[in-house]
Computed example of a mutant assay.
Amino acid sequence: MTKAFCIAFVMTFFSVFDVPVFWPILLCYWIVLFVLTMRRQITHMIKYKYNN
């Protein structure tokens, strides 16, 4: 983790790594991750009867 942090910190000082991000793609990515995670959590809760 420390190595990754140091590499990312050094990369912030070089403009070649400044990649533009299209925000709708990030929004869709977040929604997909949220849905997949919640589906897994809900099936786990149903399996172990948390919803009583």
Rank of each mutant, 00 (worst) to 15 (best):
F13V: 01
T37G: 10
N52I: 06
L26S: 15
W30E: 15
F9V: 07
M11W: 00
D18V: 00
F17E: 02
Y29K: 03
I42P: 03
V21S: 10
N51E: 07
I31T: 08
L33R: 11
T12H: 04
T12M: 09
M1I: 11
V32D: 05
L33Q: 09
M11Y: 00
V10H: 02
F5D: 04
L33Y: 05
V10C: 06
M1G: 09
V19L: 08
F13P: 00
T43N: 14
S15R: 12
V10M: 06
I25N: 10
K49E: 14
R40I: 08
C6I: 10
I25V: 15
K47P: 03
C28W: 02
T2W: 05
Y48M: 07
C6K: 12
W23P: 14
I31G: 02
F22I: 08
T2H: 09
F22Y: 15
L27Y: 10
F34N: 10
M11G: 01
P20D: 11
R39M: 10
F5C: 01
L36R: 09
A8P: 01
I31M: 10
L36A: 08
Y50A: 11
M38G: 08
T43K: 14
I42V: 15
I46W: 08
R40V: 09
Y50G: 05
A4R: 12
F34Y: 15
P20C: 04
N52M: 04
M38N: 15
T37R: 12
V10P: 00
S15L: 05
H44T: 11
V35K: 04
C28S: 09
F17H: 03
F9M: 12
D18H: 02
A4D: 15
M1R: 09
Y29M: 05
P20L: 06
M1F: 14
F34P: 02
F5M: 08
F14I: 06
R40L: 12
T43C: 08
F17T: 01
C6D: 11
D18P: 03
I46E: 11
T12C: 07
P24L: 00
Y50L: 10
V16R: 03
I25W: 11
L36I: 10
P24C: 01
C28E: 03
C6P: 00
N51V: 13
I25K: 09
Y48H: 15
K49Q: 13
T43Y: 06
T43P: 02
M45N: 07
V21W: 02
K47C: 04
M45Q: 05
W23S: 11
F17R: 03
L36S: 07
T37H: 11
M38C: 11
F13C: 01
F5A: 08
V32T: 13
D18K: 03
M38I: 13
I7D: 06
V10S: 04
M11C: 07
L36G: 12
C6G: 00
F22N: 10
V32Y: 10
T12V: 03
T2F: 07
C6F: 06
P24D: 03
K3F: 08
I46N: 07
A4E: 14
F13Q: 02
I42W: 12
W23R: 13
H44S: 13
V19Y: 05
R40H: 11
D18T: 00
A8G: 09
K47H: 07
I25P: 00
K49N: 15
F13A: 00
P20Y: 05
I7S: 03
V21G: 05
K49Y: 08
I7R: 07
L36D: 05
T12F: 01
P24Y: 01
Y29H: 04
